[in-house]
């Protein structure tokens, strides 16, 4: 009898505490390892500025991943984010070219992104369309609308945009960051606050755990389901703005496949694709891991950029395998 209960008891104690955090810890370890590998291999890699550049080059992806984290936590998926980023750059560029003031252009971008998200959310909630299909439609629509605005790339010459794009903030240790990084970090902070300290956030987790239970518990599942797509749409639009700061142009072929990067970052960041488990912080580290891989490949010089995709694929695989392992252990409880 003891022989039978002992290992059960042990495994319970071992896995109860960290199993929720295990993927995030693993992500962090992977980040430290990849970054460490870069630091050992290349001189000047382990500088504050390289880390800052990780944030600067991926600020838009961080914002995108935050929105995607909300969606995936409810067990959904948002394929439209890359296309919405492109549409946002396009709207920003076109409205600025038409002479709109910068603040109005920004508002227009954020409003249209959120509205698209609202539309997809309503389709998913009211019409019971699967998230995959609804956001696929959103993706087609957003990409197509880019080309309705213009087939060609439009450059952004607005002084306000240019200023935000090029101005840097000096941190102690002579490390420079852009405003985009500050915006991205603010988004992360707000997202963490909402997810962990508000009823909306906890309901996001509840819906991901079991939507039918959450509904029977009397929680506002409908509002949350629609809400996460609005949040994701808003984040995509914001990421699109950051991306237009980065590229200083609007183009319908910007950010092709970026939804995959966002999903990859969230998964590598330890969020369970079935929903209900994961952290925004994890997604940020996930983005940093992807960014580090890219940086290493560019430092290497001889490696072609398509290696990035292969490495991301391998990382995805590794983290999916890890998730399976955790689920197996939970089931054994």
């Amino acid at each position: 009898m003891t022989a039978l209960t002992q290992p059960r008891f042990l495994s319970r104690v071992q896995s109860r505490v960290p199993s929720r955090f295990l993927p995030v810890i693993a992500t962090f370890v992977v980040f430290v390892l990849t970054f460490g590998a870069g630091a050992v291999r290349y001189e000047g890699f382990a500088s504050g500025q390289v880390i800052a550049n990780l944030f600067i080059d991926n600020a838009f992806l961080i914002v995108l991943a935050v929105g995607m984290t909300f969606v995936i936590l409810t067990g959904g998926i948002d394929l439209s984010v890359g296309a919405v980023v492109a549409l946002s750059t396009m709207i920003a560029a076109a409205t600025l070219e038409a002479g709109w003031p910068a603040w109005l252009a920004v508002l227009a971008v954020l409003a249209s992104g959120s509205t698209l998200g609202l539309g997809m959310g309503l389709m998913i909630h009211k019409l019971r369309v699967q998230p995959f299909i609804a956001t696929l439609a959103g993706m087609f629509l957003a990409r197509g609308l880019c080309f309705v605005i213009s087939i060609d790339s439009i450059s952004i010459k607005d002084p306000a945009f240019r200023t935000i794009a090029t101005e840097t903030v000096m941190l102690p240790g002579k490390v420079a960051i852009t405003y985009s990084v500050l915006i991205a970090l603010a988004v992360v902070a707000v997202a963490a606050y909402v997810l962990h300290l508000t009823r909306f956030g906890r309901t996001v987790y509840a819906v991901g755990g079991s939507e039918s239970s959450a509904r029977l518990m009397g929680l506002a599942t409908g509002r949350v389901t629609v809400g996460v797509y609005v949040i994701s749409g808003f984040c995509s639009a914001l990421a699109g703005l950051l991306f237009s700061f980065y590229m200083l142009s609007g183009y319908g072929l910007h950010a092709v496949g970026m939804e995959l990067d966002a999903i990859a970052a969230v998964v590598v960041g330890g969020t369970l694709l079935a929903g209900g488990m994961g952290y925004v912080g994890g997604s940020v580290v996930g983005v940093l891991v992807l960014g580090t891989v890219q940086t290493i490949i560019s430092f290497e010089g001889t490696l072609s950029s398509w290696w990035t995709r292969i490495v991301i694929g391998v990382l995805l695989l590794a983290f999916i395998a890890l998730q399976r392992l955790i689920l197996y252990r939970q089931r054994d409880l």
């Binding site: 998926i77 995959f132 995959l260 999903i263 990859a264 998964v267 694709l273 398509w306 290696w307 990035t308 995709r309 292969i310 991301i312 694929g313 391998v314 995805l316 695989l317 999916i320």
Partner: peptide, 13 residues
């Protein structure tokens, strides 16, 4: 969706 995402991501590479 995830299993095939791996090859979708890495395949073009």
């Amino acid at each position: 969706i995830i299993a095939t995402l791996v090859l979708m991501t890495a395949g073009r590479g």
